[in-house]
Design a protein around this nucleic acid. Sequence first.
DNA 1: CTGAAAGCGCTTACAG
DNA 2: CTGAAAGCGCTTACAG
Lengths: 348, 348
Amino acid sequence: MIRRQVGIRDVAAAAGVSVTTVSHVLNETPHTRTSDDTKERVKQAAEQLGYKANRLARGLRINASGMVGLITEEIAITPYAGRIIQGAQEEAAKRGFTLAILNSELNPDPEIDPKLSQALVDRQTDGLIYATVYHDEVVVPAQMHAAPAVLIGARDRDGDVPSVMPDERAGAAAVIDMLVEAGHTRIAFAASSIDVPATRGRLVGVREALADAGLLDEALIVEREAEAAGGYAAARALLDRPAEDRSTALFCYNDRMAMGVYRAAAELGLSIPGDLSVVGFDDQAPIPHSLYPELTTVALPHYEMGAWAVNTLSALIDGKDEYRLLGAHATLLPCPIVERGSVARLGV
Amino acid sequence: MIRRQVGIRDVAAAAGVSVTTVSHVLNETPHTRTSDDTKERVKQAAEQLGYKANRLARGLRINASGMVGLITEEIAITPYAGRIIQGAQEEAAKRGFTLAILNSELNPDPEIDPKLSQALVDRQTDGLIYATVYHDEVVVPAQMHAAPAVLIGARDRDGDVPSVMPDERAGAAAVIDMLVEAGHTRIAFAASSIDVPATRGRLVGVREALADAGLLDEALIVEREAEAAGGYAAARALLDRPAEDRSTALFCYNDRMAMGVYRAAAELGLSIPGDLSVVGFDDQAPIPHSLYPELTTVALPHYEMGAWAVNTLSALIDGKDEYRLLGAHATLLPCPIVERGSVARLGV
DNA sequence: CTGAAAGCGCTTACAG
DNA sequence: CTGAAAGCGCTTACAG
């Protein structure tokens, strides 16, 4: 900023001590003794003058910028990138870090482009987070091995960089459990046809939980495009039959598909949840609240992943290299079910 | 980052010149003559060693961090905050700035809390952007008057800080014009009941354009909650009558209301756009693509506002104080109609 | 055309 | 318990 900031020398002068002393008391430098009286005077002066250490000078001196960088692949298309950023930002603020953001294009292949990481290194960030979408495993550039780094949404193929992702499998299984618990025995699943980790994770969760309940029927699992139109098609394929043969619950790969299911149900004269319980996945605003009845769905831990990322990044920056061990397996964060009005409990 | 960076001295040594010369040629310092031969050697050496000036050192010296800060009110709840960030980020990258992000809570009153701005000042950002929602006019804290600053989504009451917002009025008027052009003469509008600038802007745009066309009928303007349920209610109130009395087009305050309208239309046996044309506002993913037929709506210039903000902030930072004159009136950015399948052209 | 040197605002051995 | 001084990596008058 333009205005001349008050510097450490101003504080020293005001308190009648040396800048050394000011630095010591304000930073609470360990192994340093200062009389309480001096401390008090320094703090008073700093407070009074509104002194804040210049981060550039401090950073240059201690070789740490206090900045953490977040690279997001196509911030715009992922509906919840905002929540990741928010989680990262709030955690960063809590720890005194400044969050810098860099946006990248969507990257179809698993090799992360080193350009953005390099840009962050060039900017002296103390560490970096790379948030990807659509990948299981990724090979990270040299910069991410050389510096404190963390991955969101994908595992490091080399097992070196710690990573987080949603526990899609458990989230999907929990929905099946809830449905079974509510008395449903004919449970259908509208799977997604695009090949991403979420597709696979949710599908195996569904299959496992259904099998565990002795309720797995492959005929009730159909695969369609993960959009409203796909959900509509799945519902027509699954539900256009007499009530005796019909599933009483339809779990959808995502909320968009669930939207299509609502439309199909309306056309077929099926009431939700009276005739059909439906559950989505993603908790993608504004869908769940905009449907009638409101959609029961599964939330993704975007905020939590962002916070987790700067949290473990912070540990890495502090030199806690044990945290590198986290790179071996992705850390899975729970996807909580958020119950709204689209699931019926079947009479006993 | 941990590793020792290559410094300007390494480049100087490699090129066999002084650091002064390296600095001059790499920064293309004006009023400085250097032989082409020397220039070449320096550039080669820098390139070869992968030298990038330490931003902290440079910033300390020239008193400019190269950082620009963006404060967003509740990044999470505004569906498009991501686009604002993206626009700001890409424009910042283009100009060599690093974008730092700070998230704030939603602030109901028009006085901007100085805390966040101060935090940015303390971090030595060269300028700051404050993105607000739900405000017409705002009173900015001292920090924003003292430093280069720009507002998104609200005007500065003091007329000092430049600001951008969407031209809601023109966007809404354009929809009416399009509908009139398509042959509609009974055009209804489902207005919003919450008191925000968008509500007012869109409503006056609608009224003006309708009046201009000689088609204004207050009975066709109803006000409801700006959610799917409100749109549903508006549609039931407006459309539950014989075809002769019915509007042929219903323009909604936002896409969420349009969702409710689709549901009401289905219940009333009205086909879209055959019996009823519907238009939304916001282009809020994933609604428009998830409806059948896909929804014609109006897009908000979020990306553009983000880009505009760092653009004019950059001018302010460069000392082009004429730009402060922009503070007198908000700059209005166009809201383009995005035509999809929900509007019918009426036969001649 | 080129370079020696001061200095940006801090932190941190080191000395007393 | 306190302070003088070096130095982080740059840029920029200034001298030659």
